[in-house]
């Protein structure tokens, strides 16, 4: 009996093991960001079995890699400042531009970027902005200021969802206050601390992966959100408007990076090259509704995605990238964040 059970168990284990094909690719990706059809297409074209795990913040990606996941993924999709951090942590592998036949498809302004000069370990994926959206059924006033989130009008109090990431939330708060990022000025930090503490009383929840759903379901009437995610919420029927605040908003670029100790380095490069095909980059854009960093992707875009109000800010809109702070400053921001969620 025992023997029988043991054999069955072993057989079952090997069954799941056998389900994995020869060529593999293991992706660590933001959630709800890449269409399954595109992964299937890659899978078919290159006869590679693709597995994907998802994360919901740049920090969660870093934490997972730190806690032993490095070496099990081939590629990941960190945002700009996280590329820099991963690189400084020695978590990235490098490649030569010649290893990617489509390297030339990268839009010129995204080739030599500050967070990865010359694109040694990364390729551009999508870029967009972080701001907030408001349900117009609930509030029809002006939403041109971050005060909607940090000093909300009466109608929105207790109905706001905030992204559950220290980086973006505190950066937007800094923009609202007009203080620089990564500041070590005590008064400014105290001011920042006081602001978010006070604003928290008006917030309903913290959540990044829920950011779209709370707006669609009506659980929240306003929320910090990424541009494309807001467009998707709108497409799903929420009567929301994405704001372009006068204090500025966060601009970011997500990048596909080649991870150190990637178990399938060749397939990883094939995948990166695949994503630099204009048609494939456009497929991601059509799904996630951000903007691709690849030449020629435009002609494959759905018109409503291309012309979406979320992806087309006014010409004079200010945007900043989130900065990676040095350790002695970062601990202060961490302290403010923990203090906020206590």
């Amino acid at each position: 009996m025992k023997k029988l059970l043991a054999t069955t168990g072993l057989a079952l284990l090997s069954l799941t093991a056998a389900a994995q094909a020869e060529g593999k690719l293991s992706i660590y990706h933001w959630f709800e960001y890449i269409p399954q059809e595109l992964l299937d297409k890659f899978s078919e074209e290159y006869d590679v079995e693709v597995t994907m795990d998802t994360f919901d913040s740049n920090e969660a990606l870093l934490a997972a890699l730190k806690a032993g996941k490095l070496g099990s993924y081939d590629v990941a999709v960190p945002g700009d400042y996280m590329v820099k951090i991963l690189n400084s942590e020695g978590m990235l592998d490098t490649f030569e531009a010649s290893e990617l036949s489509n390297f030339g498809n990268i839009q010129d302004q995204w080739v030599d970027v500050a967070f990865d000069p010359g694109r040694k370990s990364s390729i551009p994926y999508q870029w967009g902005s972080t701001s907030f959206s408001v349900n117009r059924d609930v509030f029809d006033g002006s939403i041109d200021s971050l005060s909607v989130i940090f000093d909300p009008p009466e109608e929105l109090k207790g109905k706001i969802n905030v992204l559950d990431t220290a980086g973006e939330t505190l950066t937007l708060a800094s923009l609202y206050l007009g203080i620089p990022q990564c500041t070590s000025d005590r008064d400014q930090l105290k001011e920042l601390n006081a602001l978010v503490q006070k604003a928290k009383a008006s917030w309903a929840s913290f959540g990044s992966d829920v950011a779209k759903d709370v707006l669609v379901s009506g659980d929240a009437a306003a929320g910090m959100i990424w541009s494309g995610f807001s467009a998707k919420a709108r497409a799903e029927g929420a009567n929301i408007e994405y704001a372009f605040p006068k204090e500025g908003m966060i601009v970011w670029m997500d990048n596909v990076v080649l991870l150190k100790d990637a178990p399938n380095r060749d397939n990883a490069l094939k995948f990166m090259n695949f994503l630099l095909e204009p048609e494939n980059a456009a497929a991601v854009t059509n799904y996630a509704q951000y903007t691709a960093g690849v030449k020629g992707a435009d002609e494959f875009l759905d018109p409503e995605v291309k012309n979406s109000p979320e992806s087309n800010p006014p010409a004079d809109q200010n945007g900043v990238f989130v900065e990676a702070c040095p350790e002695e400053v970062q601990v202060l921001y961490d302290a403010i964040w923990t203090n906020l969620k206590k």
Binding site: F31, V210, K212, D213, V216
Partner: peptide
Amino acid sequence: FGSVKQGI
């Protein structure tokens, strides 16, 4: 859980 976080 992963799916539910993005809405039920």
